[in-house]
């Protein structure tokens, strides 16, 4: 895995709004083809900013985003075109991912035109694409507001596929949808990933969705990746207290009410470990030294007390 040059990667990436870094020295390699990678974080964790930087929509302040090992800023015209065609976003439905004035077909055709497909041949591809995501080709003449939320999300996926990418960056792709609709969109993503040999970067706050679609996962807190590893191990035996808190906070069907640490503030600390203010494992060292990612079993975690966390992280919740 480490010998292969990643298709897309964040390398020591820092993005700041004003003087506050929102993404802090993040390393995140993404490989092409049928691999799901989850990026888990709550609001304000910096996950969406990281995604926008990976998509070339934001300039990094330090570090870089690389495409096939070359910094985005240094790509030639042809390489840049290559980058645009291989990495495609799927944004959530909430923020008008489709132009409200354009018919669905025109939105998809705009993507096809970037591939040099226009005219009649494009029209038949539009139909194919719509059918591929489980929609009728006749929807091409509709405008976004005439579709349901689930249909719109499928169109967004179809548009992303139109340019035949190798990697989809999905930012909360199902969060705005009803659960039954969400389930079908997830199914679709699973199938498309396999059929098109697609890599998926799934950015979400929903652990269960990551567990279902992603082999590996990264957890972000306060702009940093605090834990990375194989999804199953990461969720069953978290090595970072935040991962553990996230997992334990998810209500399970028919289970007991999740535990909470009372009295802890939700703020991130400015010095030392950002998580220490709400961390039950925190000691003096956490205030003095910012932990860096280090190997802990199958995962890497940025925690001084990772071994203790693993021990405490009895996977009782996941017994089913």
């Amino acid at each position: 895995m480490s010998d292969e040059i990643p298709l897309l990667a964040a390398v020591g990436l820092t993005v700041a709004y004003g003087r506050t870094p929102v993404v802090h020295e993040v390393d995140l390699p993404l490989y092409a083809g049928r691999r799901g990678v989850g990026l888990i974080g709550e609001s304000g964790s910096g996950k969406t900013t990281l995604a926008r930087a990976l998509l070339g929509l934001l300039e990094p302040h330090h570090g870089e985003v690389t495409f096939r090992g070359r910094s985005l800023g240094e790509l030639s015209r042809a390489e840049r075109r290559e980058y645009r065609s291989q990495v495609q976003p799927v944004f959530q439905d909430g923020n008008e991912a489709l132009d409200p004035r354009m018919r669905v077909g025109a939105s998809i055709r705009e993507a096809l035109a970037m591939r040099g497909l226009t005219g009649r041949s494009a029209s038949s591809v539009v139909t194919d694409l719509l059918e591929d995501v489980g929609l009728s080709g006749s929807l091409a003449t509709r405008r976004p507001h005439e579709l349901s939320g689930g249909q719109r999300q499928r169109v967004v996926i179809a548009r992303a596929l139109a340019i035949q990418p190798r990697l989809l960056v999905l930012d909360e792709p199902t969060s705005a949808l009803d659960v039954t609709v969400q389930a079908r969109v997830l199914e679709l993503l699973e199938r498309l990933g396999e059929e098109h040999d697609l890599g998926l970067l799934l950015i979400t706050h929903n652990l269960a969705v990551v567990e279902r679609l992603c082999e590996t996962a990264h957890v972000m807190f306060a702009g940093r990746v605090v834990e990375s590893g194989p999804t199953r191990q990461l969720l069953s035996q978290p090595a970072h207290p935040y991962t553990k808190a996230l997992r334990d906070a998810v209500p399970t069907m028919g289970g007991a009410l999740p535990e909470v640490v009372e009295g802890a503030t939700a703020d991130a600390a400015d010095t030392g470990c950002a998580y220490r203010l709400r961390c039950p494992f925190a000691t003096k060292v956490c205030a003095l030294q910012t932990p860096v990612l280090r190997r802990v079993g199958t995962q890497s975690a940025a925690c001084h007390h990772a071994e203790q966390v693993v021990e405490a992280g009895n996977p009782g919740v996941l017994s089913s």
Binding site: L55, R81, N95, E96, L98, P100, E110
Partner: peptide, 26 residues
């Protein structure tokens, strides 16, 4: 900052075209 403008930029649509096709009409 709408999703469709970001989506067009990610497709590699030129700024002039993004302005003409998406920003201006809307």
């Amino acid at each position: 900052s709408r999703g469709y403008v970001d989506a067009a930029r990610c497709l590699g649509v030129s700024p002039a075209r993004v302005m003409l096709r998406h920003v201006l009409p809307n």
